Computed example of a mutant assay.
Amino acid sequence: MSPLDFSFFAIAGPAVMFAGISKGGFGSGAAFASAAILALVMEPGAAIGIMLPMLMLIDLATLRPYWKRWSAHDAKVLIAGSVPGVVLGAAFYTVADADTLRLLIGAIAVLFVVWQIAGRAGLIPVARRPFPLWGGLLAGVGAGFTSFVAHAGGPAAAVYLLSKRPGKTEYQATTVIVFWVNNLLKAIPYGILGIFTAETLWADLWLAPFALFGTWLGVRAHFAIPERAFFALTYVLLTVTGSKLIWDGLT
């Protein structure tokens, strides 16, 4: 697929818009489905390279509506853990080939769906008391690592945040500030490792309107639309794309 041709925008445009809707309105961490979709049609490194500036733009657009609605303590704990997690992710990227990245992104996608469905079905016990400080730091490490290699840090952060039983908006706001900082941390090693290229950044300029429109829709959806239908679509997307990436990585 050649960037800036019709086939690229036919896939990348909706994928980026979906990331905006997910990050703007639903704090499930499901925005990484966009990177998984792009990884189906291009090298995984290029896919995550294209998505990081878009996620950073979405983060910036969502800061205002959720400003200071987050839990400052929980955000600081997760961000502190994310720093070594990002370092580990960068180290892993230097030794992983494209098929290994496809397998990892695909496995994370499928496991995300299994985790979400099991949690909603009551098969995963909810923490009876808030996680201790070390648990939050460990969740931050997991969030930083998976965020670096697949933009999929949401589940690790969610395990910690949900143990605190936050309100819907506090939870969403906390994920916004955590991953805004997390994505800033990732930008430097992405540049050093060549994950950003002139070609991916040029594509991002054209994709920016899709990201902003999706974010606008997501913020409004957060306050107006039940989550069930959105997550049903998300789970289907992640199951299909994750399974395909695993197959491609193995074959």
Rank of each mutant, 00 (worst) to 15 (best):
K23I: 01
I37Y: 04
Q172R: 14
L88W: 06
A221Y: 00
M1L: 13
G144A: 04
L207Y: 06
P166G: 07
V77P: 06
G85V: 08
D97A: 09
Y235C: 08
L250T: 11
M54N: 11
V110G: 02
R228A: 07
I50K: 09
A221V: 01
P189Q: 03
A46V: 14
I177E: 07
T62L: 06
W202D: 13
F131E: 12
P155Q: 03
F148Q: 05
G191P: 05
A229F: 11
W216A: 12
R128W: 09
G144F: 03
P84D: 06
V83R: 09
F92G: 07
K23F: 01
R129S: 15
P189W: 04
L38I: 03
L133R: 12
A121Y: 14
W115G: 10
A15V: 01
G20M: 03
G106T: 08
Y171E: 00
I105H: 04
A33K: 02
V86R: 04
L184M: 14
K76Y: 14
L238A: 04
L103H: 04
W202G: 14
G154N: 01
Y93K: 13
V16R: 02
I246E: 01
T174Y: 07
Y66G: 04
M54R: 08
F230I: 00
L57C: 13
L162F: 08
L162N: 08
R64A: 13
T94R: 15
V181Q: 02
V110D: 01
S163V: 10
L55V: 11
L57P: 09
F112H: 10
I48M: 13
V110W: 01
G249M: 04
M1N: 11
A35T: 14
T200Y: 09
F32L: 01
T239S: 15
L63N: 09
P189V: 03
G106H: 07
G153N: 02
A150T: 07
F32A: 11
F6G: 09
K76W: 15
I177H: 09
T175L: 15
F131S: 14
R129C: 11
P14Y: 01
F210C: 15
G194F: 03
M51C: 10
L201W: 08
E43W: 02
F131Q: 12
Y171Q: 02
L238I: 04
K168T: 02
N183L: 05
M54L: 13
